[in-house]
Design a protein around this nucleic acid. Structure first.
Lengths: 259, 259
DNA sequence: CGTGACGTTGATATGATTCAACTTGAGTGG
DNA sequence: CCACTCAAGTTGAATCATATCAACGTCACG
């Protein structure tokens, strides 16, 4: 794992026991993989993404990654995770979703309400300013049409995840929600080339997980323990493993919908 | 009320006690008002909407209004309410949102995942086939740019409602959810010109309401009763009244978000 | 005068939250 | 190397919010 060129966020977690070395330049392959998954890109388009890497920035864990209503600006995540979240006056927090490597925010002609939601880094996040990308795409040059299509499909997947999230929060039990969420994250990390078979990075504390799933931290903990006890999943140091996929999928009603 | 030109859905409910008369042509003003609220339209654009009324169709309450993945097709609701919903294998249902007069589905260049959700009529629904509208807008004629802007803002509002829905389901109590939802519906019906001051049509059974708010029907019933007892709202025959707005807004944390 | 859809109610069960204590493991500084 | 600290995870007990079940009321309609 360590010698792959993809720097995962869970690496951050697992490298805790060593002295932090100077930051290696993060590879842009995760970003490219996400987009490729969706749509094969031309060499022109890949080069465009790679050139962006010059405008790299690094956000510390816990710092805001994107401020609500940041009217101008656009970012492409190279590595690290962030959470879109909103907080009630009394402190209750709801997480709407996660940004993982290859995800993008602020691109797209029409502004999305998702960009009105503040986003906070959950690990160290390496990102590039994608304003240039946005402007290039706005020209609707034919050479970039596949990239454009890939990005707009990415946006559609994001919206589909919102719907799944509503289904989970409104009508599924703690166990079902958690199972469904883990399957979704496995799918997303796999698309980003971050997963290894049934094993995928999940650099989230139980508190964060609970705030995403609309559960208390204690109840989430018990739910996870039950899932481990039942041999459905394994969790350790920022990584999750799907042990019994078919059982999980059945439990969570995971898959395409036809009603 | 009865002599206003806007035919509301709640009229359907309240007219139960009379012989059903031949269907009067529904006015298109609700549709226009929704769009106008967002953006003043030119006379050209209004005329366009009015002309659409020729392709009118009527959907019975309970029948599907839009099938999941109906790849082609576009509709504009003139009157009546419909629910976007998904059902789990064991029958649990989650409602993602409601279509009210002036709402539109299937327009928009990029297909939205919301259009992958099946939609069912909750009252009789009068709609027009807006395929023509979609094609006209796709031309990006300058004369229709305001209409285009209005429609895309409508879509943004829809997505914002999804986020509010997630917040409600994930982190608010039954009371808060219900309050928040009622305020949202008041706002939306007002924009459609259907509300009368603090009073607005709400032609939803408690079962439907419960499935939207992620509550059991019994608990929703008790919650509504408490709200009535506390003088927050009134409900009767398909209409709701906001009695104590400031209290409700405070209770539900309703309003713009800044975190 | 049934019949069915919707709403209401009480009793009871359960899933989830809260609180508080304790564990574990990694980072930090003496 | 040890003691300390802090964040994250774990556990049990008590409590609360919400669900479930079953019965009953009401009203419109045929």
């Amino acid at each position: 794992m360590q010698n792959l060129s993809v720097r995962t966020d869970a690496d951050d977690v697992r490298r805790n026991d060593r002295r932090r070395r100077p930051v290696r330049p993060p590879s842009e392959t995760a970003a490219l993989r996400v987009l490729e998954t969706v749509n094969l890109l031309s060499e022109d388009e890949r080069a465009l993404i790679r050139r962006l890497s010059l405008f790299r920035e690094s956000i510390q864990s816990g710092r805001p990654f994107w401020r609500a209503g940041q009217s101008v600006g656009a970012k492409l995540v190279l590595s690290g995770w962030a959470a879109r979240q909103r907080t009630l006056p009394d402190g209750r927090r709801q997480i709407f979703g996660f940004l993982i490597p290859g995800d993008v925010i602020g691109i797209g002609v029409a502004p999305s309400p998702l960009e009105e939601v503040s986003t906070v880094a959950l690990t160290r996040v390496e990102a590039v300013d994608a304003l240039m990308l946005r402007e290039i795409l706005a020209l609707r040059d034919e050479r970039h049409c596949r990239l454009l299509a890939a990005l707009s499909q990415l946006r559609r997947q994001e919206e589909a995840c919102l719907l799944d999230h509503i289904m989970r929060l409104g009508r599924q039990s703690a166990l079902e929600r958690t199972a469904h969420f883990l399957l979704e994250m496995h799918c997303r990390t796999r698309a980003a080339g971050l997963a290894q078979g049934d094993c995928f990075p999940l650099p989230l504390t139980q508190e964060v997980l609970a705030d995403a799933l609309g559960l208390s931290i204690v109840h989430l903990n018990r739910t996870l323990q039950q899932m481990k006890r039942d041999g459905l999943i394994e969790l350790r140091s920022g990584w999750a493993t799907i042990c019994d996929r078919s059982h999980l999928e059945h439990l969570a009603d995971y898959g395409p919908h036809d009603d």
